[in-house]
């Protein structure tokens, strides 16, 4: 019974990892790049960090769709294309980062604080009903 459960857990983990690894990060149709990000659940806060190299600090926008979902956008300092990265067989240009982050616990969006450290964005939001 326990072994069966563990096997199912392993399979679910592997499915998640495969989906994570195969997801595309470059989206020419919307001119966006999906940034790498992390979500940490702390006792009283949810901390989201987002890696946004080459982004314009003044072009960062964090928007909450509801208490469990945030959208993060950051304008690139300059438009980037595949040719800049020496990829000649694909066409497309990129003007900003964009990602929608699902939070596993509800938060209070109005109390969110956003800080940028060396192109890593840190968004701290109090958890709902805990502070």
């Amino acid at each position: 019974m326990v072994e069966e459960y563990m096997e199912r857990m392993r399979e679910a983990m592997e499915r998640y990892l495969e989906e994570f690894e195969e997801r595309r990060l470059w989206h020419p149709s919307s001119e966006t790049i999906e940034p790498l990000f992390n979500v940490f659940i702390e006792p009283r806060e949810v901390v989201v960090t987002v890696d946004i190299p080459c982004a314009d600090r003044d072009g960062v926008n964090v928007k909450f769709l509801d208490e469990n979902t945030m959208e993060i956008e950051a304008r690139l300092q300059r438009t980037l294309d595949f040719q800049t990265l020496k990829i000649m067989h694909r066409s497309g240009r990129f003007t900003r980062y964009y990602v929608r982050v699902d939070l596993p616990v509800p938060v209070e969006p109005s109390r969110a604080t956003v800080t940028c450290y060396k192109s890593v964005l840190e968004i701290r939001t109090p958890r709902k009903g805990l502070s």
């Binding site: 994570f20 690894e21 790498l36 190299p53 990265l85 192109s119």
Partner: peptide, 22 residues
Amino acid sequence: KGEEIRLATRDLMRRTEGELTR
């Protein structure tokens, strides 16, 4: 060129993260 390197290596970082988890 740190920021450009970070941008150009993010795909490999994401793949590596999967293996780090494994």
